[in-house]
Amino acid sequence: MTLEDLKPGQEGTVISVGEKGPARRRIMDMGVTPGATIKVIKVAPLGDPIEVNIRGYELSLRKEEAKQIQVQ
């Protein structure tokens, strides 16, 4: 399952984060690393991006990026 599949209000644990590259490094720098709990807060009014809570703060990312994040 990926982060994109979670609905607002649902949470999961990060298993892995996509392919090597600047985007993944940025995602991990922001605290989305294996083992972290991630909760989807809401979806933007136009349907994308999404807002998640991770390590006690709010982060937004596009669905395209959320797809790279495996959760359970």
Partner: peptide, 10 residues
């Protein structure tokens, strides 16, 4: 040059 949207919502 791709841009991403990984941004804190303070």
């Amino acid at each position: 040059e791709t841009s991403n949207f990984i941004m804190e919502l303070p």
